[in-house]
Design a binder for these strands. Structure first.
Lengths: 341, 341
DNA sequence: TTGTTTTGTGGGAACGTTCCCAGCTCTTTG
DNA sequence: CAAAGAGCTGGGAACGTTCCCACAAAACAA
C-alpha cells in the first residue's frame, strides 16, 4: 500500500540509490543495460517520485497562489484556465483564494499563501492602495507577485498584464453615440481601482469631444455587484435625471441596472441601451444579451503565469507590463435603429 | 533573504535543534527560561517552519484536490468556499480543477491530482459511470475520494453529500401546479447524472398524482449549458407542443430556455412560468428572477471537506452519506395570480 | 608496458523538520 | 546515603530525493 521509493528499487535491484536516480533521470554515465533494468523495475513496482521530497530538495513548493476579488462571475474562472494551461504542464499547482472585494480578506489570503510557502502569487486586487505596503513586504521576503486586471499604483515595480482600458472604453462610447445615444450614463465603479478611472477617462474624452458630456451622468458606485448597479439606476430615476443609455464598468453593474429598468417596465434597448466592459459568459446569459468589451481572459491568465515564472526562475529579472487587446462585441442590448440617417 | 531555519536558531542560541524544536512545539521537558529565549529569538529572526519539510516528515502533502464539472456558474465557487472555510484553518491547501463536463478531462484532472500527491479528492462528477473504474483505482492506491452533488452509482462504497433531490423536485412541481400550471415541461438534463433522474422522478410522481403527466413534456438534454436550454425549448416550439411552464434541472438550462422565450416575444411568467434547481446567484441575475430550489452550497462543501478529513485521518473509517436540506425560493419567474380561488 | 582518460558504480551529505534515545544533573525517597 | 526518579539537553536517524565526490574497471594513448 505504501508507495514505492527509490530505496525499494535499490533493494530490489541491488543497486545504489545514486545509480537508480541516474537511470531514472537519464543522466550520463549509466550503463544502457542497467538503465533498462531500472526502468523496467520502476514500471513494474509502479514507482512515482515523491514530489514532497523533490520540493524539499530543490527548495520550492511547486505551487502558486491566485487571489481574486470575486467568483460570482466566471471572470476569474476563465483567467484560472489560462494560468493552469501554462502551469499544470510544468508541475505547478495553483491555489485560488477569493477576497470578496474586501481588502482585509485579501490581506488574510496573502498571508495564508505565504504560510503555504507558495513560490509566487498572481493577484487581481480589491483596492489600489490599501494593501500596497503588504505587497512590498511579501516581495521583499522573496515571493514574487504578478498583477492582472486591477493593478497597483506605479510606485510598485512589478510585472503586470492589463488591457487597454482607455481605448476600449472610448470605442464603446463611440458605438453608443453612433446608435443615436446622447445622454450616456457611465456606471464607473469604485475609484479605488485603477481600471475604473481609466475607463471613465476614455468615456469622458469621447463625450467631451462630441460636446455631450454631463458630470451628472458619471456615477460612482461603491462596489460592482448586481445590487450596486440597481441602486445607482434607482437613484438616477429618483432624481429625475434623463438618460438614454448606460455604459457600465462591469457585467454585474450593467445587469443589475438592466434588470431594474426592466422591472420598472422600461424597455432595453429601445428606451435605454446598455453595454459593459468584461468578457464573461454572463453577458450572454441575460436578455437582451449585453454588448460588451470582451477581454481575452484566458490569454491574460497565461501571460500572468508566464511573467510569474520569469520572476520565480530569476528574481532579479526585469518587471514587464503586458497590454492585451480586447475587442468590442455588439449584441442586443445596444441594437436599435441607428440614430443617424 | 533565505528564510530562517531551525539550524539558524540553533547556531544563534547555541542550543541543539532538538531543544529548539521542543520549545517551539511546547513539548514537556523544556526549561521555561529556555523556551522563552527560543520564542524570542524565533520572533526576532522571523522564523517560519518550512512546510515542505514537515510534509516530508509526516508523509502528507497537506493539499487536496477539488474537481468540478464547470465554473461558468458560481455553483462550484460557493462549494469551494465551504471547503476552504474548513480546510484552510487546518493548514490544507485546495487545488481546483475544472472538467468542462467532459469525462476525459475529468480523467486527466484526477491523474494530475494523483501526480500532485494530494492527500484526498473531492469530486463532483460529469458522468455517472464512465470513470468509475478509475475512482476505484485511485482509492485503491490510497487517495480517498468524497463525492458531492453528482455522485456515482451504489457499487462504489464512498462518502458523499447530496440534497434530497426527489422531495425538493416534488415540492417545486406542486408549487407550479398551485399557481395554475397544467402543462409543465421538465428539462431533465443528461440521464448520465444521477440527480437528473432523481429530480425527474420527483417531478413525474407529482404530475402523475395530479393526472397531468405527459411524457412529451419530459425532455432530456445532452448537457446543461444555456445553449442546451435554448435548443430544447426551440424544439418544443417547433414541434408545436403546448406548455405553460418549465421546471429545469439547473439554472443554466432554465435561463437558456427563458431567454429564448423572451426573444420570441413570449412573456414570462404570464405565458410560461419557469423555475429551476440550483442555489446560485445566477438565478437572481436575470429578469424576471428565477424561482428555484436553493441548495446549501457552502454547507455542502464544508460537509464534504469534513468527510474527506475523516478518511484521510483514518482510511478504514466507515463511508457516510449526508443528505442536506435544500429550500424552495419563489421569485418573479413563477409569480402569476394563483390559478385557484 | 605505463600512464591517462572514459565509463560506470557506490557512499554519503544535504534539504528542514520531528522524535527516539542516551546521558547529565538535581531532587526525592526509603 | 545510596538508589531511584524527575527535569532538561544533545546526538542523530528518519522522511525521499539529488548530486558531488571517490573509486574501480575498462578503454585508449604513447
Amino acid at each position: 500500500m505504501k508507495p514505492t521509493t527509490l530505496k525499494d528499487l535499490s533493494r530490489h535491484l541491488s543497486l545504489s540509490t545514486s545509480t537508480i536516480s541516474r537511470a531514472l533521470l537519464n543522466h550520463k554515465n549509466i550503463h544502457p543495460e542497467t538503465r533498462k533494468r531500472v526502468l523496467e523495475a520502476a514500471e513494474m513496482l509502479g514507482y512515482q517520485p515523491n514530489t514532497t521530497a523533490l520540493n524539499l530538495r530543490y527548495g520550492k513548493s511547486k505551487s502558486i497562489g491566485l487571489v481574486v476579488p470575486e467568483m460570482v462571475t466566471p471572470f476569474s474562472a476563465n483567467v484560472l484556465k489560462g494560468i493552469q494551461a501554462f502551469l499544470n504542464n510544468i508541475g505547478y499547482k495553483v491555489i485560488i483564494l477569493v477576497s470578496d472585494e474586501s481588502p482585509d480578506t485579501e490581506r488574510d489570503n496573502l498571508t495564508l499563501l505565504e504560510r503555504f510557502n507558495v513560490d509566487g502569487i498572481i493577484l487581481n486586487l480589491c483596492h489600489e492602495t490599501y494593501n500596497q505596503a503588504l505587497y512590498a513586504q511579501i516581495m521583499e521576503r522573496g515571493t514574487p507577485i504578478v498583477f492582472f486586471d486591477r493593478i497597483p499604483g506605479n510606485a510598485l515595480d512589478v510585472s503586470k498584464v492589463i488591457v487597454n482600458d482607455h481605448i476600449q472604453a472610448s470605442l464603446m462610447a463611440e458605438h453608443l453615440i453612433s446608435t443615436g445615444c446622447k445622454r450616456i450614463v457611465h456606471l464607473m465603479g469604485p475609484p479605488t481601482v485603477r481600471n475604473a478611472t481609466e475607463r471613465a477617462a476614455g468615456y469622458q474624452r469621447i463625450l467631451v469631444k462630441h460636446g455631450i458630456f454631463d458630470p451628472e451622468l458619471m456615477v460612482k458606485t461603491h462596489g460592482t455587484t448586481f445590487g450596486h448597479g440597481k441602486e445607482a439606476v434607482k437613484e438616477l430615476l429618483k432624481k429625475g435625471i434623463a438618460f438614454d443609455s448606460i455604459f457600465a464598468f462591469t457585467d454585474t453593474l450593467a445587469i443589475g441596472a438592466m434588470n431594474y429598468l426592466l422591472e420598472q417596465g422600461i424597455r432595453v434597448p429601445e428606451e435605454v441601451a446598455i453595454c459593459s466592459f468584461s468578457g464573461t459568459e454572463l453577458s450572454t446569459s441575460v436578455f437582451p444579451q449585453l454588448s460588451s468589451v470582451e477581454q481575452p481572459l484566458k490569454e491574460m491568465g497565461e501571460a500572468a503565469a508566464r511573467l510569474l515564472m520569469d520572476k520565480i526562475q530569476d528574481s532579479s529579472s526585469d518587471s514587464r507590463t503586458l497590454v492585451l487587446d480586447a475587442k468590442l462585441i455588439y449584441r442586443g442590448s445596444t441594437a436599435r435603429g441607428s440614430g443617424k440617417h
